Amino acid sequence: TLNDWAAMLYYDGEFYDSVSFPNLEILDRVGGGDSFASGLIYGLLSGKGPQYAVNCGCAHGALAMTTPGDTSTATLAEVEKVMKGGTARVDR
């Protein structure tokens, strides 16, 4: 149930490494990829740049896999907290 979680984005000829989550305790991996994609897309559409986008996707995916079910309930504030080094466990 412990996995390393990170991402890489190739955008406009450059690679961007995301924040990483070594030994992430996975509760339910269903929805992790969809949550990554939605965070990445949000980051790109918000105009905050590719580094923000890949970090947003990675953090959102990590949060999704630490909660049960396939639908993320993480808020943008929670995702941004994780992006800045907070734990990937949702505070509820």
Rank of each mutant, 00 (worst) to 15 (best):
C56S: 15
V30C: 03
Y16C: 05
R29V: 11
Y42W: 11
G33D: 00
V54E: 02
S18F: 09
H60I: 01
D12F: 07
G43N: 06
V30P: 00
A59P: 15
V79W: 02
R29T: 04
L27E: 06
S20W: 09
W5C: 12
F36S: 09
V90W: 12
A62E: 10
I41L: 11
P22M: 01
G13Q: 02
M65N: 09
L63Q: 08
A88S: 14
F21R: 04
Q51F: 09
G33V: 01
E25Y: 03
S20R: 15
A59C: 13
A74M: 11
H60K: 05
M83A: 08
D70P: 13
G49K: 04
G39W: 02
Q51V: 10
C56V: 06
Y11G: 02
D91N: 11
G32S: 10
D12C: 09
F21V: 08
G43K: 08
Y52P: 08
L76H: 06
Y16E: 08
T67D: 07
L45V: 07
K81H: 15
K84P: 01
V82T: 15
D70K: 07
E80W: 13
K81W: 15
T75D: 09
A7L: 12
T75N: 03
I26K: 06
D70N: 12
V54I: 15
V19I: 15
C56N: 14
L76C: 09
R92G: 06
A77I: 12
D91Y: 04
E14N: 11
P50T: 08
D34W: 07
A64E: 01
L24F: 03
V82Y: 12
D91F: 03
I26L: 09
F15S: 04
E78T: 05
D91R: 06
R92M: 08
G61Y: 01
L44C: 07
F15N: 01
F21W: 12
G13W: 03
R89S: 10
A64D: 00
V82H: 11
R29C: 13
